[in-house]
Design a protein around this nucleic acid. Sequence first.
DNA 1: CCTTGACTTCAAGTTCACTTGAACTTGTAG
DNA 2: CTACAAGTTCAAGTGAACTTGAAGTCAAGG
Lengths: 155, 155
Amino acid sequence: MESLLTINQVARRSGVAASALRYYEEKGLITSERAGSGHRRFRRPVLRRLAFIVFAQRLGMSLTEIGVELAKLPDDHVPKGQDWARLSGPWSARIDERIAELERLKLGLAKCISCGCLSLELCKLVNPADRAGTSGPGPRFWVGEEDGAVGKGND
Amino acid sequence: MESLLTINQVARRSGVAASALRYYEEKGLITSERAGSGHRRFRRPVLRRLAFIVFAQRLGMSLTEIGVELAKLPDDHVPKGQDWARLSGPWSARIDERIAELERLKLGLAKCISCGCLSLELCKLVNPADRAGTSGPGPRFWVGEEDGAVGKGND
DNA sequence: CCTTGACTTCAAGTTCACTTGAACTTGTAG
DNA sequence: CTACAAGTTCAAGTGAACTTGAAGTCAAGG
């Protein structure tokens, strides 16, 4: 028994909807074999890949970015601890950055929100590195003064 | 000089695009007066409201959720330190939760990714409270075993 | 043989958070 | 008076990440 999983088995075990699994496959994030019937059969390592995808989404990464990371895993053999471990260094750093930003936000919240400087200081608290700066729709980030019409009064 | 700001002044000072400001106003997140010409005139406190919106977005909140929070601010007077401070308690807690989740993720990454248990343990690391559980599109979260087809082998 | 359930593909729909474009009005400078 | 920038509304488009629906296939059970 090679222990191949149907799409719904994977869906139940991963918490990722079957439709999402097809979507991920279409996007090249995961792969499957086919049974004679044409039905998908997933190998078990897909579960770890999915764990990684869910994980990375919680960190705010887009599927495209996640795809880039997953591409670093080998195609020629089932990924081993070492393969995943190669990814984990940069990831720890990434998480640390995000935590640091949240700490800054928290500090800013406590320190500034009641003193009137929030609207002037938030720019220094928010790290725009990740998703900002992309063109098209999506939230922008706070920038400093740029405008002539700056009063001396508190905002 | 009452120091009312035009939409582009607000846009420059907040880093939020003018189109987004109109959108926020439409959604009831901010308000403006009108000049005789029909042009929007924003009062200065809108800048702090916008700071709060940008801030909350960085925490992963939707505009709808942010609207609920902003509704807690008084309409009858310019929000003061105390008004903002009333919000800050729950917010600190919220940030702490998020930080705690990231710490768990990081720990899980370091501890589990190389030992083969990741796909079984992530469920305990990821806090689904925030955005998961919503119906419709969007990412799902990892759930535990639910399925008969569980092998004893490592995934 | 017929139904049921699990699966397939493909096209179209949904939500969020905006942006873009068209057509129009106003205020200021030359 | 004419330009032109800056503003307006409204409708439609965008991109990400999926979901939903329609129509069809396939294997197993009664």
